[in-house]
């Protein structure tokens, strides 16, 4: 117990003595992990939103009214059955004029001038969910061939595809950024530890002289690096969490786009980032230590010279 306390005390003394360098290393970890976690959050927001779109309606075929313009009674039902038989279609359902009016009222609630129309002008529609979003152009083409029944075809697929490709780019960017910045954080911690060892070279030399084991000498530096990594990672997780929470509040007015990320996402990634921060600190410390303490049987840079 006294040994653990001694090691912790030594680590804290070193942190305090090199406070400026330590703050620099913590900031480096904080900035790099904030950017990496920020990229993950943006990616998650895009994923959530594209998932919402993808799980909804992909294609809407607005229909001409039955009993007029050469559309016989029962033509809508016949078309629905046909569409449901297409291999690109996962599911499809009929959305009649009454439902269309209800949806319209919901969408434009509070905008009286837009609601001041005759409900009968809104068309019935067939709403289609595709097996694969990329098949939208083929389905659109087939629907447009039904010139008698189909008045217009609308699809959100192009927007979804754009969001998906943006999401893929962000995935690659986020991963690349996390790797590059993670390496930068490790290198910065390694440098900090080297400076800390240099600042404490006399102590290290004396520790070796009085018979401290190599691990006993290393542990305070490893603890120091771990603390730097942990604090930097904790600050990054906290900052991104605060930022995302505020973004979600600001985005509450956007009905079509969710800016909210689940708490579970933060618990999972926050924990992983803390582990990564601590590991980066330990790895950085080991790299920093390797140069100065590689020669385990020397007494360090302060050994007596001459003979």
């Amino acid at each position: 117990m006294s040994r653990i306390l001694f090691l912790l005390k030594e680590a804290m003394i070193s942190l305090r003595r090199n406070i400026l360098i330590v703050v620099g290393a913590i900031l480096a970890v904080f900035i790099s992990l904030s950017l990496a976690l920020g990229a993950l959050v943006v990616n998650e927001i895009l994923r959530l939103n594209t998932v919402a779109w993808q799980q909804g309606v992909h294609v809407i075929a607005f229909l001409n009214d039955e009993g007029g313009s050469g559309v016989p009674i029962g033509a809508h039902d016949q078309l629905l059955q046909e569409v449901m038989g297409w291999e690109e279609v996962e599911s499809a359902f009929y959305f009649d004029k009454t439902q269309a009016w209800e949806e319209y009222q919901e969408l434009f609630a509070g905008q009286q001038e837009l609601l001041d129309i005759s409900p009968t002008i809104l068309p019935a529609s067939i709403r289609i969910e595709l097996v694969d979003i990329e098949l939208h152009s083929s389905v659109r083409f087939r629907l447009e061939q039904q010139t008698a029944s189909v008045r217009q075809v609308a699809t959100a697929a192009e927007s979804i595809e754009q969001l998906q490709s943006l999401s893929n780019v962000l995935n690659v960017l986020g991963l690349g950024m996390a790797i590059v910045l993670g390496v930068a954080a490790v290198v910065l911690i390694a440098n900090t530890i080297r400076l800390a060892i240099y600042a404490r070279r006399d102590e290290v030399s004396i520790m070796k002289l009085v018979g401290a084991s190599n691990w006993f000498i290393r542990v305070p530096f490893l603890l120091e690096g771990m603390i730097e990594g942990l604090v930097g990672a904790a600050l990054a997780v906290f900052a991104v969490w605060v930022g995302t929470s505020n973004l979600a509040k600001a985005g509450e007015d956007f009905a079509l786009f969710r800016l909210e990320v689940s708490q579970q996402f933060f618990f999972r990634w926050g924990f992983l980032f803390l582990v990564f921060g601590a590991l980066a600190g330990v790895i950085g410390s080991m790299l920093g230590l390797s140069k100065y303490l590689r020669d385990a049987d020397g007494t360090g840079p302060d050994v007596p010279t001459g003979f």
Partner: peptide
């Protein structure tokens, strides 16, 4: 790895006190 154990049984005094 055994060198520290040797040094625990050997005290050292240097000119520059350390």
């Amino acid at each position: 790895w055994k060198i520290p154990y040797l040094r625990r049984s050997v005290g050292t005094v240097f000119q520059d006190y350390k």
